[in-house]
Design a protein around this nucleic acid. Structure first.
Lengths: 246, 246
DNA sequence: ACCTGAACACCGTTCAAGT
DNA sequence: ACCTGAACACCGTTCAAGT
């Protein structure tokens, strides 16, 4: 629904184009605001100020705070459509497809770590829509690819469920590890490195527990999941792995 | 820290024992309040009323709302210590141990579906503490069991990470599916069964997408995870599966 | 047409005052 | 010793009023 972008000169503030509010612009500003200041700082009045306006002005374009957050989630998830690494059409088999999709969602999580908990935990439109893949278009696309690849309806659905919970758990932890308060919380008030006396193994293994095994873990775990999924395939239709030709 | 339970006659209100507040009782009431009314209804004043007192009275025992929520998370997670199905000591090998632990956490999630999102997303005491297994005692115990079973330090830590993200993703989705608003949200305002025209596969597969494959999925996925973990073991030390002796 | 001031009901939190 | 009233700063939200 691409509407003519009004004036938008008058650079200046972070609202970037003070000339004319509209829902889309407000939501985009909310995303940036959360990226910069964290979810718990987002207030109607502060978002208004961020856009050079009083908070109440936003209500002309957005039904309320909850709807705004829904819009934020939708906007962030929709970035997947503009990710050049993730083509809905041009994929080399379902393994390649799921890998691209998984990495695309991971990129979103890492680009908007403060928004991702919202993507993960906001109620979905229907009970069978599971975060973080919460766009009907993408769910349909995934089911399409899987059934085309020879998976039964049941198995295609099971893959969607498994894939969702894998991404949700993995990315939420990865993002939480990067110093994100995933709830509405105060300053972390950094615990003075917890007293680990009485926990000898925690002391010894602490270096191994720190995140930053993240990228590697992710690929391995995704690989394992895909291997397991491959076993669901009825015949000898093993996926043509990452051979770039079609 | 079992302190003499004061009067507590005067039954009546849901506060159950109006005779004397204290942090423990307030936290327990908060857990019950969230179970009954949902997280988004929990307010200092409403919790006060629930306990037969004005909201401000709580501040004598609890530093503030955030600390209260931390207490809620801790209390719920600590239920694991009283779960007769989960014995820290009496386990028949690491597979049995991880299965009991996983099911114990699932039971917690299903007992307190409205609290679990808090368990899942609240910032942890240290960056290497990963929800939902966020008790130092349990993490230590898990690492102990795994290293005792012959896993290297690196692998024991990797198992903790993998296990955590599996449980987090799986249980958060399961709980979200059971009509829980996992965020601070208004009435779900049940979408009038979304328009699925244009999404033929979603229409066709919708029955397969509904949750309630939950329990089965969980066991299967946990099994798969444990099989994968078993491959990390150096020698022929395959776990003695569920033989109840010793 | 679009924004603002003032107002309302509700938060979390503090503290002097009551009992 | 323990709770409450009143107050403060801040929410989300509505609406009559300004421009």
């Amino acid at each position: 629904m691409r509407d003519a972008v009004t004036p938008e000169a008058r650079a200046g503030g972070p609202g970037s184009g003070r000339g004319g509010l509209d829902a889309e612009r407000i939501i985009a500003a909310a995303v940036r605001f959360i990226d910069e200041h964290g979810l718990r700082m987002l207030t109607m009045q502060r978002l208004g100020a961020y856009l050079g306006v009083e908070g109440m002005a936003l209500y002309r374009y957005v039904p309320g705070r909850e709807a705004l957050l829904d819009g934020v989630v939708e906007a962030v998830v929709d970035e997947l459509f503009n990710d050049p690494e993730v083509h809905l059409e041009a994929h080399a088999g379902w393994v390649d497809y799921l890998q691209r999709l998984g990495h695309g969602l991971r990129r979103i999580a890492l680009t908007h770590p403060e928004v991702f908990p919202l993507v993960a935990t906001r109620p979905t439109a229907a009970p069978w829509v599971r975060p973080p893949l919460r766009s009907l278009r993408w769910i349909e696309s995934l089911l399409q690819v899987m059934t085309d690849a020879g998976f039964s309806d049941e198995n295609a659905a099971a893959v969607y469920r498994t894939f969702s919970s894998f991404l949700l758990g993995y990315l939420l932890l990865e993002v939480a590890g990067r110093g994100v308060e995933t709830g509405p919380v105060e300053e972390p008030d950094v615990m003075p490195t917890e007293d680990l006396s009485g926990y000898p193994l925690l002391q010894r293994l602490e270096p191994h527990l720190s995140l930053d095994f993240a990228a590697q873990d992710f690929d391995e775990a995704l690989e394992a999941l895909l291997d397991r999924v491959a076993l669901l395939l009825p015949r000898r239709r093993r996926p043509h792995r990452l051979t770039a030709d079609e």
